[in-house]
Amino acid sequence: MEAPPVTMMPVTGGTINMMEYLLQGSVLDHSLESLIHRLRGLCDNMEPETFLDHEMVFLLKGQQASPFVLRARRSMDRAGAPWHLRYLGQPEMGDKNRHALVRNCVDIATSENLTDFLMEMGFRMDHEFVAKGHLFRKGIMKIMVYKIFRILVPGNTDSTEALSLSYLVELSVVAPAGQDMVSDDMRNFAEQLKPLVHLEKIDPKRLM
């Protein structure tokens, strides 16, 4: 079998414009068990999946006013897993008919020398954190329940400290642009998590 010519790969962008639909909420530590229990009931029947990731956010200051942001993520509990490079566009709140936050997204798996590559390109690390939690799936929906730890010594993921007494809960779907119907499914799913967790579209600009 011959490998497809490189030019055929959709790396140039624009061919598939993927969007991430997102709802966010949080759950206090003591209610985590109940939430996990409910999610196990609601989601696809699969082995409970946990993750422990280290995310680094890099900035590239160009001529434009706003810097270019890339997120590099690596798994800390699964040796040999590829790194994950992610670009997220500006989030759009949209109107009332769309029940989720939408932002452009590009996901790429990379080798582990990603940070060196980014640094060579002129990127500088802005901040980093450790995310530890549970992953659930229901169809194309992905539900992540995780705790965020701040890193006390730069680059040393052994000394960390929990950011808050809550777990962040994210319900996300990555779909081609214009598939706003998925937000209806997301809203329905979010309804089923009430009153344990209220998943909402939260505009991060409001929190800056």
Binding site: V57, L59, E128, P154
Partner: peptide
């Protein structure tokens, strides 16, 4: 009380632009 809206905001701000996280941003930027 199973969730705290203030915590939600703090966590969202943290993942969105690193608010509250230690940042090692070089000076000047």
């Amino acid at each position: 009380q199973t969730f705290n809206p203030a915590d939600t905001n703090a966590l969202v701000a943290a993942v969105a632009f690193g608010k509250g996280l230690s940042n090692w941003r070089p000076s000047g930027s």
